[in-house]
Simulated scan of single mutants.
Amino acid sequence: MEAFLSSTFAIAIAEIGDKTQLLAFILATRFRKPLVICLGILAATTLNHAAAAWVGQWIAEWITGDTGRYLLAASFAVVAIWMLIPDKVEKEESRFYRYGPFTATFILFFLAEIGDKTQVATVLLAAMYDNYWAVIIGTTVGMMLANVPVVMMGKLSADKLPMQWVHRFSACLFLAFATLTLTHG
């Protein structure tokens, strides 16, 4: 349960103001099919985070002991710093739009997640917790918690939330993960 809750909370907070959340808004205003867009986000996130969690589990198998713990803690600290750098997304027309809302959302969201903060965080969470499915489900739920309101209600958070404070809170959360990794090893 800890792996699920930590993964959900970490990703939901980290996703606020992230480029994929901005992409979700762009797709919602482009296609005006919120349910289809949410399903595309769900499918892309599940696949992307399953791969990321697999990488995290694989890394945890190969890098063990104090070395693994220190590398994992340092990686969480790097993600904490990365959280302080706001994301931007291009608003240009995509060639994938012609494939319709589900396929365009799936492709664009999957590609945008590659190397994104939340994907890297998923790798780290899977390396930290020995519960592959709880991490995948938790990170996917976290992504949906952050993105569904944006898709369903339009431009909800990007202009109304104090993004600097959200990013600082996210950074503190990942510093807490770094500290927990060091102290509970």
Rank of each mutant, 00 (worst) to 15 (best):
A24I: 01
F25Q: 08
I26F: 14
I26N: 04
I26W: 01
L27A: 06
A28I: 03
A28T: 11
A28P: 06
T29P: 00
T29C: 03
T29N: 10
R30D: 05
R30P: 08
R30C: 05
R32S: 06
K33H: 14
K33I: 12
P34T: 09
P34Y: 12
P34V: 14
P34H: 07
L35T: 15
V36N: 05
C38F: 09
C38A: 15
L39Q: 09
L39H: 05
G40C: 04
G40Y: 05
G40H: 09
G40F: 02
I41P: 01
L42W: 01
A43N: 05
A43Y: 03
A43D: 09
T45P: 11
T46I: 12
L47F: 13
L47E: 07
L47R: 04
N48P: 07
N48W: 04
H49V: 07
A50T: 15
A51V: 15
A51T: 14
A52S: 14
A53C: 11
W54M: 12
V55P: 01
G56W: 12
G56T: 02
Q57L: 08
W58P: 00
W58N: 04
W58M: 02
I59N: 00
I59Y: 08
I59D: 03
A60V: 01
A60F: 07
A60L: 05
E61K: 10
E61P: 00
W62I: 10
I63E: 01
T64Q: 14
T64S: 12
G65F: 10
G65Y: 09
T67W: 13
T67M: 09
G68T: 09
R69S: 15
R69G: 11
L71F: 14
L71S: 10
L72H: 07
A73Q: 00
F76N: 00
A77R: 07
V79P: 02
V79A: 10
V79T: 06
V79Q: 00
A80Y: 11
A80D: 14
A80M: 02
I81L: 14
I81K: 11
I81T: 11
W82M: 13
W82L: 13
M83R: 10
M83N: 15
M83C: 15
I85F: 15
I85H: 13
P86L: 08
P86G: 11
P86R: 06
D87A: 07
K88C: 05
K88G: 06
K88M: 10
V89Y: 05
V89T: 14
E90A: 11
E92H: 09
E92M: 03
E93T: 11
E93A: 14
E93V: 15
Y97T: 03
Y97E: 09
R98D: 08
Y99P: 01
Y99N: 04
Y99I: 04
G100N: 12
F102L: 10
T103Q: 12
A104S: 15
A104R: 00
A104N: 00
T105W: 06
T105L: 04
F106E: 02
I107L: 13
I107F: 03
L108T: 00
F109Q: 03
F109G: 00
